[in-house]
Design a binder for these strands. Structure first.
Lengths: 354, 354
DNA sequence: CTGTTAGCGCATTCAA
DNA sequence: TTGAATGCGCTAACAG
């Protein structure tokens, strides 16, 4: 177990150490090493340990290229994205990159401007021999894209999708449950007059979040004042204006739950104008935990989606589909739901005493 | 040039079409096809065209695995990042992923919490056989990380780095020139009393931007009122407070140039409280064009760095270094400067008439 | 300018 | 439970 002086330089590229070196090192055939590496069961435990020791001693790591070449399993998946500044794209990329690295498949990215272009891009991807695509929201919600995918017979997994196009697999957070939990938290803090800003009406997530809010209020035996539920559009400006409505009322709410962070940030900005102190006089909470949440001040209490994790799971789900397709098997479309997390930062506090 | 009915299914994985198929299709040897594919010059133009035609007809694309295996050039680079919510990380990932896809090298990612961990991670990466690393700011500015990189003899390229650790290659935007240009633009709009919010003092970029501001004012023959230059810390809150100082003055500025978008957003929020209208009464401009710039309302006029492009160039620079290192050649560290772009959105307007 | 031979590092298929 | 042969798709090195 001594550190050999010469071992460090032996890596990929030139004189990398191969499966043969390992085999020689522990006196077995390369085939046996291969079996151990790939976790096959038909190897004597004793042999396995010997091989493992050599692998560690030589700091061996198998060549991905040789592996995919020999196993004839060269799968390549793509992330289809629209706007590079979408705040969760980096998390998706991180999750996907991590998992593809582990699974030994290659990851490409493809950009498209709108839904029209997305349809085209899907066709290009298929023509280029891509085996499957990862679809971040909002593309994952599009039925047109789903249809294009069907047409070229390409597996996909939608990430953070609010809806699930027929026949397509998606992974997301339970918006209803999350909104329920956040509202309940506000109620626990003593708030009873809670304002709610709905999301964009063309997005199903908006409905689920709104319903979660109502459900939590009902569950707590609280009436919801319909004047305190106002329409928003998921952008800062609409949050700003909604706040004007809500805070302009004689009996203003002691808490405002905005359906996303951008709107919550808008509320925050307007609260300043109204001279109401957050969180002492008003709690403000958002949804999504985007960069906005920690950019503004005070930092937002919000709901976090496990985006990185969902993305890596999405890769696995995609691989499952691809293999099923290759094997001629059928893969039942799934809708996977993952747990959210409530991140309490500086904009939520107990309701002010009246 | 007819579309053969059977050609579509022939892709990677199982029955992919190979260089042999192409060779057969146009009656040459596989080697000649290889030469054409790799753009070698010693092929007769006539032959090249024939091959190209077959490639197109068969929709052939070479197998990356086979290529890297045969050429014995398996290089693998990593992006070392700290905070997944850093707004430009996705752009870096996009640029890097695009370029590594083109160059046929693999991309990994590695996360680290702080600088201490970064040093460790660098060592792990080296031990894992990574050939080089991409360093987004702010890690790219760290001398400690640079030292660790030296220790394990690992090439690197810093992206959007304000400073260049000795011996390290970086690619960035000319902060001075950009701040100069933005200030000049404000002056063109008729502003003469311009407030400036400096960035965090521990970041060299702050100095360059500040100097660019001064230089532009001087160049225009304008005096800068030192009371109008206030210290900020690159966060929303410091921008908010700086705005309070600036807007609380009897002779407040008609424009405020914040050294980054987050601070500009803070200024915007406080302008509301002061009841000053943006951009009619006050122009506010930022720097970086992060997601914040388009989240707030009105949307920010700002300076955009070509991050995606810089990232793909960074990959090339890294590859150059890696090859130089393998060849035993020396690679002179470089500092590449790229052009910025001024994005005029809704927060800048001609100076109000007095 | 073009073709032939050899082998990259590994996994599959068979045999022992 | 293990090993020997064979070839994945491509390119380097040499021949012609």
């Amino acid at each position: 177990m001594d550190i050999e002086p010469g071992q460090k330089a032996a890596r990929r590229g030139r004189n990398a150490i191969t499966i043969h070196d390992v085999a020689k090192h522990c006196g077995v055939s390369p085939m046996t090493v291969s079996r151990v590496i790939n976790g096959e069961t038909n190897v004597r435990e004793e042999t396995r340990q010997k091989v493992l020791a050599s692998v560690a001693a030589l700091n061996y790591s198998p060549s991905t290229s040789a592996r995919t070449l020999a196993s004839r399993d060269d799968t390549q998946i793509a992330v289809l994205y629209t706007n590079p500044s979408t705040s969760y794209l980096n998390e998706i990329l991180i999750g996907a990159l991590t998992q593809t690295g582990l699974s030994g498949c290659r990851l490409t990215i493809a950009k498209c401007e709108g839904l029209d272009e997305a349809v085209e891009t899907v066709e290009d991807l298929a023509a280029a021999g891509i085996d499957g695509v990862l679809l971040p929201a909002p593309i994952s919600n599009s039925n047109r894209v789903a249809l294009a995918l069907d047409r070229v017979n390409l597996p996909s997994v939608g990430i953070a999708a609010a809806q699930q196009p027929p026949g397509r697999t998606t992974i997301a957070v339970d918006d209803h449950a999350a909104a329920f939990a956040m509202t309940t938290r506000l109620i626990e803090l003593g708030h009873t007059r809670i304002g709610f800003i709905k999301g964009h009406p063309n997005n199903r997530a908006s409905d689920f979040r709104t319903e979660g809010f109502y459900a939590a209020m009902n569950a707590a035996g609280l009436d919801v004042d319909v004047d305190l539920v106002v329409q928003g559009y998921f952008d800062y400006h609409s949050g700003f204006e909604a706040a004007a409505v809500l805070l302009g009322r004689p009996d203003r709410p002691t808490a405002i739950f905005a359906s996303n962070d951008d709107m919550a940030a808008g509320v925050l900005a307007n609260a300043h104008s109204f001279g109401v102190h957050v969180p002492a006089e008003l709690s403000v909470v958002g949804f999504d935990d985007t960069t906005t949440a920690t950019t503004v001040w005070p930092e937002l209490t919000t709901v976090r989606q496990p985006t990185v994790h969902m993305a890596s799971e999405a890769v696995d789900l995609l691989l499952l589909q691809i293999r099923a397709k290759r094997a001629g098997a059928i893969f039942e479309p799934r809708r996977e739901l993952r747990d959210f997390e409530i991140i309490e930062r500086q904009t939520s506090a107990p309701a002010p005493k009246t």
